[in-house]
Design a protein around this nucleic acid. Structure first.
Lengths: 172, 172
DNA sequence: TTTAATCCCGACCATTTTGGTCAAGAATAT
DNA sequence: ATATTCTTGACCAAAATGGTCGGGATTAAA
């Protein structure tokens, strides 16, 4: 269970755009140089980010990418979900995952675990926005991240009762 | 970000032992047959589970594996951590991950995100025990999983303030 | 004491995923 | 026109995943 560099690079690139775009588009070449990420790899990632509607592209000279909406309205989860495979893919403890039926049948709790874990992770990642990471908070604040619950992220219809209360983790 | 079959298989095998062991050891061959998991793959997994002290082995005829402690004292997190690579490995948004220094330096929040995410996941997985999954709860109960916070899992020293309040997710 | 059951261990291996590169093209500001 | 920038698709090496194989070591029981 790992977060790949695709996720990390994508988040870094999105932060980079948010920090360096003053209304004008940011070319990938600039991000590549600043973040030390290969241009071609960025291009690959940004196709997914564009199709996922978190950035918009502008072609030609002085072109580049701009955030599709305000940095405070783009969550880390929005980004990560576009470039990472989903955690929960309908498999539980069932013997044969291709079959819908679970081995321990009506008492199966396995699927619920992974789906609940997935919910937890998504709620956590959706509680942090690109704007949060651009504000350069003081170290004390870093560890006291304010968690916003019930955030509705793009393309993911959540009923309110689906959303867990995400409490801040006191790490320090 | 995926949970591999190693994690799922290991959890299933542990549940299998808990359900079929009446004090006597459960041979891998029996688990293999019941769960449809290759014997050799199980052997591979159980080496890690044994070294991680969640099971004990008994060799010779009528041998097999027994849980190293009560099913209610073994969490899913205990199992999964033994066979899955760790989520958080000291990398944040830093340009050069081999260097300890982060690009956005004193205001770096990136590392905190992944480490907090890791905490969240561990707390969640540590809130569910093998015993919970053997009790065959009714479907209603399945989705109302009671989360126990502040569980101390083997080999992971947690200060109380490190542990988030894990609330039950109302899925249904 | 042989035999069979069982765990133990290390090497091996095919496929998929990851983390990219390369080359050619299309759009567009200047 | 031309240079800049995104767009697309093919390709590729290395690592991880999800196993298999073959032989040992240990031990209960016939």
């Amino acid at each position: 269970m790992q977060i790949s560099t695709k996720g990390k690079y994508s988040v870094r690139a999105m932060i980079d755009i948010a920090q360096h775009s003053s209304g004008s588009p940011v070319p990938l070449a600039a991000i590549s140089k600043r973040e030390g990420i290969s241009l071609q790899f960025l291009e690959q990632l940004f196709q997914q980010l564009r199709k996922g509607h978190v950035v918009k592209s502008i072609r030609g000279p002085h072109g580049g990418y701009v955030l599709a909406r305000e940095a405070s309205e783009i969550t880390i989860g929005d980004i990560v979900r576009l470039v990472e495979p989903p955690l929960y893919s309908s498999s539980c403890f069932a013997r044969d995952e291709s079959v819908e039926q679970c081995r321990i049948a009506e008492s199966c709790i396995g699927g619920a675990i992974w789906s609940q874990l997935s919910e937890h992770i998504n709620n956590f990642l959706d509680s942090i926005t690109v704007a949060d990471l651009c504000n350069k908070p003081k170290p004390e604040v870093v560890y006291g991240l304010k968690m916003r619950s019930n955030r509705i992220s793009e393309g993911r219809a959540k009923r309110p009762e689906d959303v867990a209360e995400a409490e801040a983790v006191e790490v320090a």
